[in-house]
């Protein structure tokens, strides 16, 4: 996929900031607008820009589809794993108050982990869908 010098340079400048912004949205979602869903989508969008500008082969070298499949299920497992950890800590399923000695801290930890799981799954799903569309021949 050959592309313009302008587009390449612009993308090189833009992509790190897009991805950094996604991470900010992910971990600052408790205090401002944002959270796992948005972060996953923005991260995937940054990745899709990379793939469109620098070619699908390079993107695949960066992030193989096997790894994506692991991430796809890993995020969901992280989410449900937090729930099961709560069960073992003596609470109900997804009752984060039991994760730490202080219920408020426990809630905070639980929300962080769950949002991380959401973010990973959403990113992997979007990227995997994009891969599937890109690799199906026209």
């Amino acid at each position: 996929m050959p592309s313009d010098v302008v587009i390449r340079t612009l993308a090189k400048l833009l992509i790190p900031f897009v991805m950094l912004f996604a991470l900010y949205v992910q971990f600052h979602g408790d205090f401002g607008p944002g959270g796992g869903f948005q972060a996953g989508v923005i991260f995937a969008a940054g990745f899709i820009i990379y793939s469109l500008v620098f070619g699908f082969k390079n993107a695949k070298r960066l992030l193989s589809s096997a790894l994506l499949r692991w991430l796809l299920s890993g995020g969901l497992l992280l989410y449900s794993g937090v729930g099961i950890a709560c069960l073992f800590a003596g609470g109900n399923y997804l009752d984060y108050s039991t994760l730490a000695s202080d219920p408020v801290v426990g809630q905070h930890i639980g929300i962080m982990l769950v949002e991380l799981g959401v973010g990973i799954t959403v990113f992997a799903a979007m990227a995997a869908i994009f891969y599937a569309f890109e690799s199906s021949d026209p």
Partner: peptide, 10 residues
């Protein structure tokens, strides 16, 4: 709606 948008795109 937040969740519905992302589910909608998938």
């Amino acid at each position: 709606i937040l969740t519905a948008i992302v589910v909608g795109v998938s």
